[in-house]
Amino acid sequence: MTAKSKWLDFHTHFGEDGSVNSPFAVVSISVEDVDKARMPNLFTIGLHPWQTDRLDSYRMVVNRLPGLLAQRRCLALGEVGVDRLRGAPLPAQQELLALQLRTAETQHKPVVFHCVRAWSEMLSTLRAARFTQNCALHGFQGSCPVLPGLLDEGWFISVKPRNNGTIAPEVAEIPLQQILIETDAKPVLIADVYRAVAQVKQIPVADLLSTVTENAQRFFGINPAAVGKHA
């Protein structure tokens, strides 16, 4: 599996060509892919559920992940989680998730979750870990049976385009203060994702840009300007 990049752009403005210019884009990297490409300026890192069936999955989580997660440029653990359709058997995925959550809790890092048809397994693992840091759901496209509960618990929801490039109408139900934006490595400009989400939320794009910046500050627990200065 190649690196599954996700862009959370949280301090941004539109350029003259309509693109988004930002030194504060956050890329999601798998711990397996660290040695294969140049590391981005800001990133999240974890063992993706799809890679849990690797023979060296436990070694990567126990031996490699803590040091990578501790880097100043690493803002969160993720994507991690549970996937019923791909990866190791669910008990093994849950065990690996628990190990990663323990590391993130120790280092006070938030977590970006991937979950496919295994909500009860993922949430039971999270609760058993007594995890207290911020949580975000990756790749929201309108299908999430536990969305109301996640919102009540203060989760951030990272919105991405559907396969046809549109934004799910269910995004209208997500409070603005809990939205993050991503492309999930799709061949689209993140500026276009902002515009599409702003249309669904019926607010000016500038307001959405400002709100997502503030949301990301709260989710990552950092000052974006400080990160850009010292990264």
Rank of each mutant, 00 (worst) to 15 (best):
203 I>C: 12
187 P>I: 04
191 A>G: 03
169 P>A: 15
216 A>Q: 11
206 A>V: 04
230 H>I: 07
171 V>Y: 14
164 N>E: 03
208 L>P: 02
158 S>V: 03
219 F>I: 06
208 L>H: 04
208 L>Q: 12
215 N>T: 03
185 A>Y: 04
219 F>H: 12
225 A>C: 09
208 L>A: 08
175 P>L: 00
208 L>F: 08
212 V>P: 06
169 P>F: 15
214 E>P: 01
220 F>R: 12
172 A>K: 15
196 A>N: 00
160 K>W: 02
173 E>D: 15
206 A>S: 11
167 I>G: 11
190 I>F: 07
176 L>V: 02
160 K>Q: 11
199 Q>F: 05
182 E>I: 08
221 G>M: 14
203 I>S: 11
162 R>S: 06
204 P>F: 09
194 Y>R: 00
161 P>R: 14
184 D>V: 05
199 Q>P: 01
173 E>L: 13
172 A>M: 08
171 V>I: 15
186 K>H: 10
189 L>I: 00
212 V>S: 06
159 V>R: 06
185 A>S: 13
219 F>P: 07
166 T>P: 05
227 V>W: 02
184 D>L: 02
213 T>V: 00
181 I>R: 13
199 Q>W: 06
158 S>D: 04
189 L>Y: 09
189 L>C: 08
172 A>E: 14
165 G>A: 06
196 A>I: 00
197 V>R: 07
160 K>D: 08
206 A>F: 05
190 I>W: 05
182 E>K: 09
182 E>D: 10
215 N>A: 08
190 I>N: 04
220 F>K: 08
213 T>A: 00
218 R>D: 02
227 V>E: 03
207 D>R: 13
158 S>C: 14
174 I>K: 04
222 I>R: 15
215 N>Y: 07
217 Q>V: 00
225 A>H: 14
223 N>V: 14
178 Q>K: 14
168 A>F: 03
195 R>S: 06
167 I>M: 13
203 I>K: 10
159 V>Y: 08
203 I>E: 12
170 E>L: 07
193 V>R: 08
186 K>C: 02
226 A>P: 01
168 A>L: 01
194 Y>P: 00
212 V>F: 05
164 N>Q: 02
194 Y>W: 00
168 A>M: 03
162 R>L: 06
186 K>N: 13
179 I>H: 12
204 P>W: 04
183 T>E: 04
212 V>A: 07
174 I>M: 04
215 N>R: 09
220 F>C: 09
201 K>G: 02
180 L>Q: 03
193 V>W: 14
198 A>F: 11
185 A>M: 06
229 K>H: 05
207 D>H: 09
202 Q>Y: 08
220 F>I: 08
180 L>H: 09
207 D>I: 04
186 K>P: 01
226 A>H: 11
225 A>V: 14
194 Y>M: 01
219 F>A: 11
205 V>L: 15
213 T>K: 02
194 Y>C: 00
221 G>L: 12
181 I>S: 09
172 A>F: 09
174 I>H: 03
171 V>N: 15
204 P>K: 06
190 I>V: 12
219 F>K: 13
181 I>G: 12
228 G>V: 15
199 Q>D: 10
199 Q>A: 14
174 I>D: 01
185 A>I: 01
